[in-house]
């Protein structure tokens, strides 16, 4: 029973690719709009060989990584502040709760007005998307830190600063890690919006250009590259997270 499951699992993707190839070549569908995987593969190879792929990958990675790091840092910092200090929370939480539900993609028009097609605008979108998720999970995590731990730390003479750095931050860490993981997929959503809004390089930008030239193979190759990037980012993070919450 188990063995059959593993076998079928291993065949899942190859079977899908073969079925796709057969259907695309059979003439049932328009091969220009629905090219077979072999055509997609050729487009991918060409993309890499021309050197353009690495420029696109670099541009997209830069946006997603920088945006993620800045958004996460801001989210953690403000989450600790609003989670820990009631006054800061009263000041900021209502605002954040109003802004948070607006899908970040809806900000594309105003970002173009503010920043044009510059890199800053693209980073802004990614930072914006990442920030709210990380802020909320940090805020909740800080509030859920076991009061008993805080009291124990107080009784041991823990000064304010260490209390924040050690007890509160580490106590909230499991929550923060969950927020960061969600934020990774959000950073890819917002990357897509940012590059579709207009760019000069990038994986999604390449997809858009290929679409305009009716290079459907290249479009699908771009999608595959984006999916792989996002998948690897998530797996990498999962591996890092396991080490971050080291005491579990």
């Amino acid at each position: 029973m188990k063995r059959i499951n593993i076998l079928v699992g291993a065949l899942s993707i190859p079977l899908f690719v073969v079925a796709w190839e057969v259907i695309a070549r059979s003439g049932i569908v328009n091969a220009v709009l629905f090219p077979p995987p072999s055509v997609v593969a050729v487009a991918l190879v060409e993309w890499v060989r021309s050197g353009q792929f690495f420029l696109d990958l670099g541009a997209s990675l830069y946006r997603v990584v920088t945006g993620f790091v800045v958004g996460a840092a801001l989210g953690i910092a403000l989450g600790v502040l609003t989670g820990q200090f009631a006054l800061v929370s009263s000041l900021l939480s209502p605002l954040f709760h109003i802004l948070r539900p607006i899908p970040p993609i809806a900000f594309v028009p105003i970002v173009i007005l503010w920043f044009g097609l510059s890199e800053t605008g693209k980073l802004f979108l990614v930072v914006w998307g990442v920030f709210f998720t990380v802020w909320l999970s940090t805020h909740i995590g800080v509030q859920k830190v076991d009061r008993g731990l805080i009291r124990a730390a107080l009784m041991l003479g823990t000064p304010r600063r260490q209390m924040l750095q050690e007890i509160v931050l580490l106590g909230a860490l499991p929550y923060i890690v969950v927020g960061l993981r969600t934020a990774i997929s959000i950073s890819f959503y917002t990357l897509v919006a940012a590059e579709l809004a207009g760019a000069f390089a990038g994986i999604v930008y390449r997809i858009e250009i290929a679409q305009q030239n009716l290079q459907t193979g290249q479009v699908m190759g771009g999608l595959a590259a984006l999916g792989l990037m996002s998948f690897i980012a998530d797996r990498l993070f999962a591996a890092v997270a396991e080490r971050t919450v080291w005491w579990r």
Binding site: R151, A152, M155, G157, I167, W246, W247
Partner: peptide, 25 residues
Amino acid sequence: GMVFQQPHLFPWKSVRKNIAHGPRM
């Protein structure tokens, strides 16, 4: 010093580091 009904040990610290926490602080 205080000992509570629940141990309230810092879960991210080893036994030694839990005990050393106070002197460090």
